[in-house]
Design a protein around this nucleic acid. Structure first.
Lengths: 340, 340
DNA sequence: GAAGGTGATTGAATCGTTTCACAGATTAGC
DNA sequence: GCTAATCTGTGAAACGATTCAATCACCTTC
């Protein structure tokens, strides 16, 4: 590995290393002609600064870490994009890690980020705020919870009001006249999953006269939803729910697909379905999916902004920004009135 | 920022810094009792090694960089997962950057990775192998092209035979009796897009007697596909193709959706559709999508393996691994015989 | 009991930057 | 023409790990 150092540049340009460094970082303190000479030496040697050395000296890196729950989920991909954009604006880059809902991987990534002395970490935590996370914060590394309300935890957070989203989804089903509601979830240790459930329960209680059940899927993917759809077919028809609120779009899409393709039930006639996220595929599903939209990109940019503000002034109180989700009604929940 | 160094640990444990380092890295060279003492000091102080310092000393980091074309695309998400898995096995982590089909961002990430002295870079390049990439490689940083055949470029690569995939897709449409074939693509500077086109052209030539046209979309997303579907509705019906091969699933899904929902055309009766990728949503689309499946995860793991092998033995010839894609026939291309 | 061997530990040099106190040279002010 | 102020540029001291030759302590062996 051929490696040029600032020293080589200095020698070639006939200046001291300090000057080269100044050209790189505080170009106002150096005369125009020396700067030019140094720059041409840099080009000639193909010098690229070693960020490890800089980092060692200044004490922290110029990256942010983001531990995301699931990188295959378009919702998080979009959050990541937002974070990236905001970070780039501040000259930072984002180191991405996918915990894939596995808490030991979550911990591994936090360790990694800590070793790298990242400028701050964004995390969509799997469950509770772990001791791991607390330690990172005590160390002085700013952290913002993403897609998770951190009120009371002492952490700043950027989230969407999942209880309200769950309420809106269930309420909509009830308003459509459905009375045997089911909530389809998985991995109930994930806060969002239980918050949406909580909202749904609240709506049921408010309206009254409806039954409610919780169905567990194995995971939160399309294929898990498909499995649930298939197994539903094996239950006695009269025990079926007449509406299912799924904790994300992927599950809902899989569910709808299984119901339709196996001819188990008509959607929405027999069973109405509502998803959550409004990802790119919700509107393109077998039957366009009624769902709850979240401002995903905004979540990412806001999280980074908060992180940077806190890094600039460490005495700031934690902020918990909560966005409101928006119900998007499409065809999986609307029986067309007027049609036969 | 409270920062403990190896020095603090050494003092507390009553040993030298060298010994602490040995405990961390070559634990066989240190007696069991000292090791224990050192470890408890580490715990007590909450010491976490500074990877910048290590990196500076050893000369390279323990991360790989991956510049991916589009992180919202589930295909790449899956490739990334594979890469992550393989890297984790070797004790490395992956720094992800999304070029989002923007070549200046691609360059920025390469710069960043170079400054970070990553152990190697994976890249799904937008277009040609850029000078940028060549420079990185001259510097001795291994690089593997992902989802791009690098034969003749001097770079190792891991790809899927897109020409064969394009051929299979078009051939399938022809075998179904379609004779007015269209290829729907966008961003033709992307190699995959043109390779699939090339394969399709070849199939048309082989079979003969069919017309062929190329339709351009704005981009490669679901909504771009939707736009094409809408504008197709404005063309004279007799000028329509009777089959469209889209350069990825997202486009195909959007296209199908627009055709169906606006009632423009029946799929597959009027127009048959084939996509590419077989992503999680293809089988869950409005009408399950005929598509070409790629071994995405395998692509990621193989790329990392090659990278590591090359890093271990720098005199290795570049290897260009090419996987074969697989046509997956679903309903967007099959008129059910026997039905009315 | 001297020589040699083995295993554990030490401490200084090193990696490539940034930073800062300082030195020369030039300009300005009076 | 002298002092002060302003610009440029210098060079050495960090930053926190790893590494390696050197040292030390303790056994064997003859």
């Amino acid at each position: 590995m051929v490696t040029m150092s600032i020293r080589d540049v200095a020698r070639l340009a006939g200046v001291s290393v300090g000057t080269v460094s100044n050209v790189l970082n505080r170009s106002d303190r150096v005369s125009a002609e020396t700067a030019a000479r140094v720059r041409s030496a840099i080009d000639e040697l193909g010098f690229v600064p070693n960020s490890a050395a800089r980092q060692l000296r200044v004490g922290h890196s110029s990256t942010l870490g983001f531990v995301m729950l699931d990188m295959g989920n378009p919702f998080f991909a979009e959050v990541g994009r937002g974070a990236n954009d905001a970070a780039a604006l501040a000259g930072l880059s984002v180191l991405l890690g996918a915990s894939d809902q596995n808490s030991s991987r979550e911990g591994d990534y936090l360790d990694l980020f800590e070793e790298q002395r990242v400028r701050g970490v964004l995390i969509s935590p799997i469950g509770d705020v772990t001791p791991h996370l607390r330690r990172i914060r005590e160390r002085g590394i700013g952290s913002v919870l993403v897609d998770r309300n951190g009120t009371g935890t002492g952490f700043s957070s950027v989230s969407v009001d999942d209880v309200a989203g769950g309420y809106a989804a269930a309420r909509h089903l009830l308003d459509q006249g459905r009375r045997r509601i089911a909530y389809l979830g998985a991995q109930f240790e994930i806060q969002q999953v239980t918050d949406r459930l909580k909202g749904a329960r609240r709506a049921i209680a408010d309206v009254g006269g409806a039954t409610f059940e919780v169905i567990s899927a194995r995971g939160l993917t399309v294929s898990d939803g498909r499995d649930v759809g298939k197994s539903l077919g094996k239950r006695a028809v009269r025990s079926w729910p007449d509406a299912i609120f799924a904790s994300n779009d992927l599950l809902a899409i899989g569910l709808v697909q299984a119901l339709i393709l196996t001819g188990t039930a008509r959607v929405p006639d027999d069973i109405a379905i509502v998803g959550y996220d409004d990802n790119e595929f919700a509107s393109a599903a077998i039957i366009p999916l009624t769902t709850v939209r979240q401002p995903s990109r905004l979540l990412g940019t806001t999280a980074v902004q908060i992180l940077l503000e806190e890094a600039a002034d460490s005495k700031l109180e934690p902020r918990n920004v909560q966005f409101q989700p928006q119900l998007v009604v499409r065809q999986t929940s609307m029986v067309e009135s007027g049609a036969s």
